[in-house]
């Protein structure tokens, strides 16, 4: 029986079935994670503002995300009369879909990626640079001034911060000597890249805030200026898909930060007695803990800082991050070459 199953999994159709099972094993926990991220956000913001947050539905309000989901499902999807219906409905699906497919290359543990491809970092970068389309298409297809303004702001913002994010990634790649995400994590066994590349780590975190349109860079939504920005015309499930996509993107970006800078699934303090003890805890737990820590920082930032003004946002991206990341890339490459520490790629 077992032999038959193993034999079946080697046929082309079996490989397809296996991939679908793997994808479900990753996406179902991810979606539950997204649901509880919205809950965590409201609880954390509540605690930081001396409120209770959601506490009515279920014990400690734990069923709140599901109550919200059910409410969303039963609402009516309104398509504005001047809208372009096909594109209007495509935009949220695109946002949500992109937030999901990027997970194909994320390794949660050694060899646990669905697709362990050679150009993993480039794939992630490509997918995250596509996120802007969901926003632009939504803004344009809604045929509404506020939505369009939000889309334009968002497009300019996401394109700007991608440039410095690219240079930060290149710095990490130079240190790791590979574009493969598993290899990048394994290159951090001696020291996590967050330590030698600390300024880049901070800049990467800030860039991910801008890339996911999170506070303090949430001017595409800017409810005090342009109502809700690009998704002002969306309701019901089409809105929910944007919402889910945004939160899934937050988790994705946190995972990227974890893999690039915080050693992915590796336990901390390897080589010491504490490290030996920490090794007993399985890798995926470490991965999830690190991601949760960065997600907490996302929420913490939201509760702390006021929204950036548009020109200041652009200034930070182009005049501060871009020159500095370029400088640091040259510095790191120079040090690696001079000291002979350059990793040799296979």
């Amino acid at each position: 029986m077992v032999d038959m199953v193993l034999e079946f999994l080697k046929t082309p159709f079996g490989i397809l079935v296996l991939t679908v099972i793997k994808a479900l094993a990753l996406l179902v926990p991810l979606l539950i994670g997204v649901a509880y991220l919205t809950y965590a956000e409201r609880k954390v913001l509540g605690a930081m503002q001396l409120r209770k947050g959601p506490n009515v539905v279920g014990p400690f309000g734990l069923f709140q995300p599901f109550a919200d989901a059910i409410k969303m499902i039963f609402k009516e999807t309104v398509i504005p009369s001047g809208a372009s219906p096909a594109l209007f409905l495509m935009a949220p699906m695109l946002t949500f879909g992109l937030a999901m497919i990027a997970w194909a290359v994320i390794p949660v543990n050694d060899g646990w990626a669905i697709a362990d491809i050679n150009v993993g970092v480039l794939y992630l970068f490509a997918i995250s640079s596509l996120g802007v389309y969901g926003v632009i298409i939504a803004g344009w297809a809604s045929n509404s001034k506020y939505a369009f303004l939000g889309a334009l702001r968002s497009a300019a913002q996401m394109v700007s911060y991608e440039v410095s994010m690219g240079f930060i990634m290149v710095t990490v790649l130079v240190c790791a000597g590979s574009l493969n995400l598993t290899a990048i994590v394994n290159a951090q066994k001696t020291v996590w890249f967050a330590i030698p590349l600390f300024p880049m780590f901070i800049m990467f975190f800030i860039s991910t805030l801008a890339e996911t349109n999170r506070s303090p860079f949430d001017i595409p939504e800017g409810e005090s200026e342009i109502v809700a920005g690009f998704f002002v015309e969306y309701s019901s499930m089409s809105f929910a898909l944007f919402f889910l996509g945004e939160y899934a993107n937050m988790i994705l970006m946190s995972s990227m930060t974890t893999i690039l800078f915080l050693g992915g699934w590796l336990a901390p303090f390897q080589g010491t007695i504490a490290g030996e003890l920490f090794m007993l805890i399985p890798g995926p737990i470490w991965f999830i803990l690190k991601v949760c820590m960065i997600l907490f920082c996302f929420l913490w930032v939201r509760a702390t800082f006021p929204r950036y003004r548009y020109d200041q946002l652009m200034r930070l991206g182009w005049k501060v991050f871009l020159p500095f990341s370029l400088f640091y890339l040259v510095l790191v490459a120079g040090v690696l070459v001079f000291m002979g520490w350059l990793p040799h790629a296979a």
Partner: peptide, 26 residues
């Protein structure tokens, strides 16, 4: 040619086409 494939998406779809779309919409 997976490197070229990813670069095509990053450069053309992620940046150039966004600017096209920007201009055409404006």
């Amino acid at each position: 040619a997976e490197f070229l494939a990813m670069t095509l998406v990053i450069v053309y779809v992620g940046a150039v086409a966004v600017l096209f779309l920007f201009v055409v919409m404006m």
